[in-house]
Design a protein around this nucleic acid. Sequence first.
DNA 1: ACTAATTAGTTGACATGTCAACCAATTGGA
DNA 2: TCCAATTGGTTGACATGTCAACTAATTAGT
Lengths: 155, 155
Amino acid sequence: MDDLQAFGIEAGKGKYHEEAFYGLLLVYTVIFDRMSRYLDRFGLTPAKMNVLMVIKHQGGEQGLSQREIGRRLMVTPSNMTRLLDKLEREKLIERSGRLGDKRVKVVRVSSKGSQALDQAWPGYMQTMKSVTDTLSLPEQKTVSALLLKWFRALN
Amino acid sequence: MDDLQAFGIEAGKGKYHEEAFYGLLLVYTVIFDRMSRYLDRFGLTPAKMNVLMVIKHQGGEQGLSQREIGRRLMVTPSNMTRLLDKLEREKLIERSGRLGDKRVKVVRVSSKGSQALDQAWPGYMQTMKSVTDTLSLPEQKTVSALLLKWFRALN
DNA sequence: ACTAATTAGTTGACATGTCAACCAATTGGA
DNA sequence: TCCAATTGGTTGACATGTCAACTAATTAGT
């Protein structure tokens, strides 16, 4: 009925596996792209934004270890190292050793990073809202519940 | 209630925008990872698999231009060039000029590529099924319909 | 107390994705 | 007809992600 011009997927054919799988891929791609474009004007990316948000909102004053950040964002340690290298070069975060365990590097958001985050934040939330508001409220409710359930089931 | 240990998202808080947004991200990440691991044993990746599938199933004998493949997979021309460079080096596809328009390169799946695709295909579909079967059939039906609707609404 | 295993982080090699700048071929207008 | 705009593809520079191999520090077991 409704050729999506992508992957040859057509809706309403009863192939739920494929529809769910490719639907996820398509929506993810579009939304990720929109968010990237929004963040670009702040010199930020989704990955950097996620890191800053997790450290500031979940690490607070004490900060978080690199491993902990990576675990929460489902990002590998090696990726974390290089992402933080860049954020450090841009002076958005600070790294310091943890007393009592020389292996650990504790990461905190710098004041410059905090400012950048505050600047980007309202539009970030607004962008998130605008992409989800393309569905009605009951639909948003249903889809969000199912996605979180799906995620939990996948573990 | 149920801390997902990621992004600090908790289900059932009524913040549907965030739940839908991060739920999408989380599910996508896990599923993409599973599919990557499955395809790895065939020397394939999701990107390569998608290219081979689109050319074979939608291009058939005549093949498709690089642009056309990119359009269907929502991939930029530059990315397409390099992806096809690799697939050509691996002899899974063939490129030839189109008569009457020297700019266009027509891409076809080679017999080796066709074989690889046939080998990977059943398990590919099975993996797709196994990740979506973590939801009940009515849930799959609902989520796939909503995702496709969401994608269409985002255009 | 010493060795073995584990843990935190880094590095190299690679895959996939973007954009901007570019060339060559084709198409459209004045 | 000929010049301008468009179209198809490539390249360079970069971002983000993986894995495997590595170092250094800590913890556990005998």
